[in-house]
Nucleic acid binder design. Structure first.
Lengths: 256, 256
DNA sequence: CGTTTACTTGAACGAGCTCAAGTGAGGTGG
DNA sequence: CCACCTCACTTGAGCTCGTTCAAGTAAACG
């Protein structure tokens, strides 16, 4: 089950054996968390980097009056807590969504690794760029899409990301968010999430029972969401249900 | 008028004389653009970096059905077009909002600069992190705030950013967006922008005539927007109208 | 077996949208 | 210099998507 980070970074550039091994070393010191526990990375000066091994977490921000916005969804293989320079993160927090196993990597260990394998710096920078691209897509999602489209888009994004780290079985995956958390991620109310998910169900696009999400018709879901996954910069050969690939095919989106 | 980039990066860490000079060198080859002209940075492989000298631009993304979301506002001193590694940007575009002067920096010149002055790498990475932090704040803005709050927040952000590069006069600055463009940036309709701006006016928070934006009551605007500018990571000693500083004071936000 | 947490449903309300028409300022050509 | 065009802003009216409030069901857990 190791090598999850090497696998992810290997998407960006070919990694050597020693590079992969050094990355795998980082996962040694693991810690377990229950659901809804904060990963306090920002305590004082000794900020550390955190690698999600198993389970899920999210980054969020809260307004003074209590409104909450989820900013990032972390899945296994993701790093949270800035790797490269400092600059305090402000009032953002990271919390687990499900029970999770994480590897806490001291800043120095990380710095030493990058020192020894300069190519990893590039790979990490790529990962940071992808994170930024995901942020942009979320801005588009929340700013322009309707509730129905937004939910469909998030499901597409999550499913594709999970399948890139081998966490899908056929057209099924785990949805690590409650409807209330989906609401906080998409800028909608929990009630509206509920009704709109039912709409997606009755349109035959998905099946959602508990945490188990099944994509019944990926092309239709993708087209409803106007989802074009190229911003995720995943390997081109990634196979998705129905033989679809990441880019929006000519027939599905631009063809209206 | 030179040194606008050095000034910005100098916010993050102290720059040496030679470092500043090298940065200023980059601005030599300038190009003029009218309003609403595309800065095509993505033509083929020879992608270059673009430094805004004067005027304004924005990055945006368009959905297949024409809906547009503005993702980033560029002001003088900003770099657009990724500086560090590659990864194609996808279907994002950059267009000027006003007439603008830009310096087009070939990728190699940029790489050489970073090679010669390693500390600049850190400074550029900081700038990238701030850009990411701004993206996050926009997600919160669009996802959680009402139209009224959203507009107020954008005005706060823009005013503070402009004042950091000396482009404000007292409590006045230029607003480089039409109401239609504001709509595309905030995920609202142009009509609603219009009505809500009038609300801000009649509440005595701002005065907006043409492109001239005057902040009549910064503390009130900041509090209406729940604006806490620390995510911009600007120098602490930045003086704003009414003697306010960047962080939300205890009386304005968290005090509720 | 009672409590909690997530999901579901109904009904009324409201923020923000669309459509449509009208005003005003700047620019161009006759 | 005026006529005309365009583009930004403004205003009105009706409607819809999504919200809030409130209550009820269902599964998980100690």
């Amino acid at each position: 089950m190791g090598g999850i980070l090497a696998r992810k970074l290997g998407n960006f550039l070919e990694l050597s054996g020693p590079e992969r091994e050094s990355l795998n070393e980082l996962g040694r010191q693991q810690r377990h968390h229950g659901a809804r526990e904060h990963l306090s990375l920002e305590n004082g000066l000794s900020r550390s980097v955190c690698l999600i091994i198993e389970g899920n977490a999210c980054r969020y921000k809260i307004l003074p009056d209590g409104r909450r916005q989820i900013l990032t969804l972390f899945i296994p293989g993701d790093l949270c807590g800035r790797c490269l320079p400092d600059l305090d993160l402000g009032d953002e927090s990271v919390v687990t969504l499900t029970a999770a196993t994480v590897a806490v990597i001291p800043r120095q260990a990380f710095a030493a690794l990058v020192e020894e394998h300069p190519r990893l710096t590039r790979a990490l920078a790529c990962a940071a760029l992808v994170e930024e691209a995901v942020h942009r897509e979320w801005i588009v999602n929340i700013g322009q899409r309707t509730g129905y489209e937004r939910i469909a888009h998030l499901f597409c994004e999550l499913f594709v990301r999970l399948s890139a780290v081998g966490l899908t079985q056929g057209n099924r995956c785990e949805l690590p968010l409650t409807q209330g958390e989906l609401a906080d991620a998409l800028g909608l109310s929990a009630v509206h999430i509920n009704r709109t998910v039912q709409q997606l169900r009755s349109d035959g696009l998905i099946c959602l029972r508990g945490r188990e999400l099944t994509i019944l018709d990926f092309p239709a879901l993708q087209s409803a969401a106007m989802f074009d996954g190229s911003y995720l910069h995943l390997p081109k050969n990634l196979t998705l249900p129905h033989g679809r690939n990441l880019e929006a095919g000519p027939g599905s989106l631009h063809g209206l």
